[in-house]
């Protein structure tokens, strides 16, 4: 029971990361019906930029870890958001009317470019986050020997706040409603006077910005990373988005947590060989869900409009 609870907490934390990154996939898919393969690498760039900034800020802001992390997060959101906007402008916008295959190639190409840049920026080595950040955050003891570390709590709160904020933005504001309208129909949205290109640009800012912050959290949580992080983590986050029903914001969050928990549990209880197969769990889960429910857990059951 204790083990179970501890694993649940770990799963929730990791699930929160998946969810943050999944949001970017799902929002872009919503407005463009495009799998943004570069998103995972933008997330990884969030980890990378976060690492560089924290390494620079740790000394001048000694003892004020939270301030350093806050500054880092804000800057990373801006930088990665800008990267997202640039990629949309360069690699996706010219292909809006080019059929289904070309944007996929272009997206993969953009991902390769980002990854190669990161490979050379890190000299293909594993990079380690500053060691003693937030070490003195209190742990919160729960039942028995189970405890929620301060870092985990902080991360969960951050994830939940960002998701609730995004949901409120999309549901309650004029621009958010316009975003939903654009994801339903570009032409009709134009007839409403909505500048569709502007909305898409906004989506390509918000999604990568959230992914970038996810990258910083992942860096803080695992303490080290290398340039290949983006592909595997990104793919799993995309799977999380599909699990929940792509294009659907609560779905992405749910899918993220489901994937995080299932993966953690399966590794913890799956016996000796399970950790070697850890990365396959997400894929197997994806296939099972899609066979059982082709539009995801929260996806609409109605058939696509033809």
């Amino acid at each position: 029971m204790e083990k179970f609870l501890q694993q649940l907490i770990n799963g929730l934390t990791i699930g929160g990361f998946y969810a943050l990154v999944a949001l970017g996939y799902t929002m872009v898919y919503g407005v463009l019906k495009l799998i943004n393969f570069a998103h995972g690498d933008m997330f990884m760039w969030g980890t990378l930029v976060g690492w560089a900034l924290l390494a620079a800020l740790v000394a001048p802001l000694a003892g004020m870890d939270l301030v350093a992390i806050l500054i880092t997060s804000v800057v990373v959101m801006g930088v990665i958001g800008a990267v997202g906007v640039t990629i949309e402008r360069v690699a996706y916008r010219p292909l809006r009317k080019a059929g289904r295959l070309s944007p996929v190639i272009s997206a993969l190409g953009a991902a390769f470019v980002l990854e190669a840049l990161a490979r050379n920026a890190t000299e293909a080595r594993v990079k380690v986050y500053p060691q003693n950040l937030l070490e003195n955050l209190p742990s919160i003891p729960l039942i028995g020997g189970v405890s929620l570390s301060g870092l985990q709590l902080l991360m969960l709160i951050t994830c939940v706040l960002l998701m609730v904020g995004l949901y409120a933005f999309v549901q309650r504001t004029r621009i958010g409603t316009a975003m939903r309208a654009v994801s339903l129909d570009h032409d009709v949205s134009r007839l409403m006077g909505i500048n569709v290109d502007q909305i898409i640009t906004l989506v390509f800012f918000i999604g990568p910005a959230l992914g970038g912050i996810g990258g910083v959290l992942v860096g803080l949580y695992y303490r080290s990373f290398d340039f290949t992080l983006g592909w595997i983590f990104g793919l799993k986050a995309f799977i999380a988005a599909i699990l929940g029903g792509i294009g659907n914001i609560p779905g992405a969050v749910l899918g993220g947590f489901v994937l995080g928990i299932v993966e953690t549990m399966a590794t913890a209880y799956g016996g000796a060989g399970a950790s070697a197969w850890k990365d396959a769990i997400a894929y197997i889960l994806l296939i099972i869900i899609l066979i059982a429910r082709p539009t995801g857990i929260l996806g609409e059951t109605v058939a696509e409009k033809v």
């Binding site: 360069v90 690699a91 190639i105 993969l108 190409g109 390769f112 470019v113 980002l114 190669a116």
Partner: peptide
């Protein structure tokens, strides 16, 4: 990276 740029 070059391959990716060429693809785009």
């Amino acid at each position: 990276g070059l391959m990716g740029a060429a693809m785009v």
